[in-house]
Design a protein around this nucleic acid. Sequence first.
DNA 1: ATAGATGCAAATGTTTTGCAGGAAA
DNA 2: TTTCCTGCAAAACATTTGCATCTAT
Lengths: 152, 152
Amino acid sequence: MAHEVEHRSLARYLEEHSLKRTKQRDAILEVFLEATGHITSEEIYKRVQKEHPGIGYTTVYRTMKLLCDAGLANERRFDDSVTRYEIAQEHHDHLVCVRCGKIVEFECRMIESSQEEIAARYGFQVLRHRHELYGHCESCREQRETPPSSEA
Amino acid sequence: MAHEVEHRSLARYLEEHSLKRTKQRDAILEVFLEATGHITSEEIYKRVQKEHPGIGYTTVYRTMKLLCDAGLANERRFDDSVTRYEIAQEHHDHLVCVRCGKIVEFECRMIESSQEEIAARYGFQVLRHRHELYGHCESCREQRETPPSSEA
DNA sequence: ATAGATGCAAATGTTTTGCAGGAAA
DNA sequence: TTTCCTGCAAAACATTTGCATCTAT
């Protein structure tokens, strides 16, 4: 099984904070780590259900919050009012296709430095930022006569 | 009374779409135009109430949607899950103070062109974007011992 | 044994919708 | 007098919380 590092990292976090390791937390972590990226709470819930029916929505929310606190996950909210989680990693921004829901990550030093400059100009100290480009991805542009497949 | 242009523009939109001009719509437009910027639905509702008690929340929401359709307002949603409205204008981005809620608008050609370049790299056609820098504004940095005044 | 976790149901907060009555054209 | 609006109450959503019960430690 892959993800040993993350499993150990969660175990350590739980221990350090005198929290308990439960089958629910393991199951949710497993599903989260196996997702390709930007998974919603609902999707996590549904996937967890398959293997462990009975685990509640509440526990999914609480556990994802825990994974964020432990530094394993990051919360993201794009323009559709649902929270998505991604595996914690270097800072980056997103391209979101408004037709098929595809999400691509990117990183741009040039933009980062422009941000610093702008913040300084207005006297702001930047803690974090959010930068999303919404549009049509390549494949959606190619078949633009087709109606949206699974808006996200 | 200022805002004649906007009032006329709304009237024209209503006419073109066979919609009706009502005292509620006028009142809400008036409050919206008099706000300095980035006003929430709740705030619009409360201000409208002062002059016109009886106007409902529903009408505020519906009218703001109408103003957006008419191109007079733009909807914005920052990290706090409430919708804000700003007077429609040239595209721009935002600096948001996480302590006092202050919002500053900025515009940066350099960033815009970097965005184009990135989108092209991934085959995306950008329709719109969202770019927000969250941090501490100058005055909040100065008195950083003080607890947050009105988190927004 | 005991602190902490779970799952249900109910609450939350924001926005939307159904509908019967009311106002603009 | 017809079409569109309004306001209320209820519904919709996504997420959170209270609480009695259960379970790692």
